[in-house]
Structures are given as structure tokens and as C-alpha cells.
């Protein structure tokens, strides 16, 4: 597969992954571009991998985690989900979902990445561990911590709603 073919097939998926982990459109494009630039530099090696997309995805999430560790990194205000371009689904409780989206932004970068890889990319814990260079047990504990925080945030939001 040529680089251009890969980008045309999977480039947008990378931007989406960048957005789900960072919550910021501009940063999502930057992350996708950085991952693609690094992949392009060693494309001969990448294309020989069993799954080139897995390789590029690994670059993207690790670049995001490195970015959040830099001293100059400051969390930018999160973008709102544009309701005009979301997939219309009348059965879905959009308010609940938005709450969850906002609660996600309160998690640590690693917790968010683990949850995104698990629930958006549908990767198993072993693959996530390999991708992030950590142990599967760390993935499980990070995910568990993230879910607990989300549940707690949601519950306290509902109590606030009832009281107001």
C-alpha cells in the first residue's frame, strides 16, 4: 500500500481518534499530521507491518501523551460537539451523552486514551497495553479508575439537576 492510499483510506479515522482523545479539533488535525509525518519518514518499514494502521495509531496516541506531559502544554477549552454534524439518532439521550463527553475531558490524559482505545477503537486490554507500552494490569486499573470517575461525575450532575 502506498502512503497516499493509506492516508486516503484511514486519514480521517486518525483525525477522529485525535479528536476523541484530545477533545480539540485543531489538536486532532495536528496529531494526525504528526503521526502521518512520522509514518511517512519510515513508510517502507510501516507498510511491511502486519497492520500499518496499528503502527500509525500508536504514534498518534503516544504523541498525544507526550504532548500532555510537556511543560508548555496547557489544556485548551474543549470544543463542543457540533449537533448539526452529528449522526442523527432520536433514540439517544443527547444531553446525557454531552454530559459524558464533558466528564471525559476531566479525566487524566492516560485515562481518556485508555477509554477511547477500549470503547471507541474496540481494542482489547492486551493490545492497548502493547500500544502504550504498559502492562495489561495497568490498562485495567486505569480504565477502572476512569469509569469510576465518569460514573461519579454523572451521578453528582444528576443530583445537581434534581436540586436546581
Amino acid at each position: 500500500m502506498e502512503f497516499e492510499e493509506y492516508v486516503s483510506a484511514r486519514g480521517q479515522e486518525l483525525v477522529r481518534l485525535g479528536f476523541t482523545v484530545s477533545g480539540d479539533y485543531q489538536r486532532a488535525e495536528d496529531l494526525a499530521q504528526t503521526a502521518l509525518m512520522q509514518a511517512f519518514r519510515s513508510w517502507r518499514k510501516v507498510r511491511k507491518a502486519d497492520d500499518p494502521h496499528h503502527y500509525v495509531r500508536r504514534i498518534l496516541v503516544n504523541e498525544y501523551l507526550s504532548m500532555t506531559r510537556r511543560r508548555s502544554f496547557t489544556e485548551a477549552p474543549t470544543a463542543e460537539i457540533d449537533p448539526q454534524s452529528t449522526v442523527p439518532d432520536p433514540a439517544t439521550g443527547i444531553v446525557d451523552s454531552d454530559d459524558l463527553w464533558h466528564a471525559l475531558q476531566e479525566l487524566s490524559a492516560r485515562e481518556r486514551v485508555v477509554l477511547v482505545l477500549r470503547y471507541y477503537q474496540d481494542l482489547d486490554d492486551r493490545t492497548i497495553a502493547e500500544l502504550l507500552g504498559i502492562k495489561p494490569s495497568s490498562v485495567r486499573s486505569t480504565a477502572s479508575r476512569g469509569l469510576a470517575t465518569l460514573r461519579q461525575t454523572r451521578q453528582s450532575n444528576r443530583v445537581d439537576e434534581r436540586l436546581s
Partner: peptide, 9 residues
């Protein structure tokens, strides 16, 4: 939520 967020990109 994550699917909808991704679809909004």
C-alpha cells in the same frame, strides 16, 4: 458518546 464525537469531526 465517542462515536457521536468522532462523527462530528
Amino acid at each position: 458518546t465517542l462515536d457521536r464525537a468522532a462523527a462530528s469531526v
